[in-house]
Design a protein around this nucleic acid. Sequence first.
DNA 1: TAGACATATAGATAAATGTCTATCTGTTAG
DNA 2: CTAACAGATAGACATTTATCTATATGTCTA
Lengths: 116, 116
Amino acid sequence: MDYQSYVPMLKAMADPNRLKIIDLLSCGTLCACDILTHFEFSQPTLSHHMKVLQQAGIVTAQKVGKWQHYTLKPEFVTAFLQDTKQLLANDADCICHDGGCSNCQDQAPRKDVITK
Amino acid sequence: MDYQSYVPMLKAMADPNRLKIIDLLSCGTLCACDILTHFEFSQPTLSHHMKVLQQAGIVTAQKVGKWQHYTLKPEFVTAFLQDTKQLLANDADCICHDGGCSNCQDQAPRKDVITK
DNA sequence: TAGACATATAGATAAATGTCTATCTGTTAG
DNA sequence: CTAACAGATAGACATTTATCTATATGTCTA
């Protein structure tokens, strides 16, 4: 699979505060000052987190007057879900097509629990 | 949503080498030495990564003779996918039920792109 | 039982990261 | 034009983390 875009997304999401920001934005666009009211940290820290989220391709920013409006990118939502399914599914594109464990009696492949 | 188990999973996945290990295990059980052949880093480094993956609830280990057999936890696969969908869906459980951006002309909620 | 093999642990180190304070830029209102 | 406000940038600092080497533990085999 293509880790090139998935890993930066995971890195950006792997912070509880940024995950909460994504959760907030999952309902719609918010400006920085509105996001900030949900946290204890400082304004520069929020600015840093928003930059990380933008660079990971998770969020877009649009300046409207004094305010920065942040929006969850629909491409991120679809790409992240698709990459996750591809990673966790035991499918044909799997990296380990060359064989299972050399020391396992049970060579049966993993049962796929993903419902598509 | 419940970040308590989701964040550690994301943290553990947000390393390209560990993500590749998950990808390898998505097809079935592998022992440590087999996993190691896919990487350039040292054996203690692999041991460290496997510990991280276990502590995040992603992988289980079973000692069989000299070998450690590592398996992707089915509970992880289902929980991670479910948490991801819940995070990215604009649903009723959303954290931001209390309203949208105070400075947006467009107060329309985000269009949900997730197909369930 | 001794040695080879698989893996884990200990400890060190360099790099990345989340946070802060101070300050700067840009925009609006009076 | 000036002051207030929203947000970004710079730089410092403490913590976390990915990696290494060296060594310990556990298991099998000859």
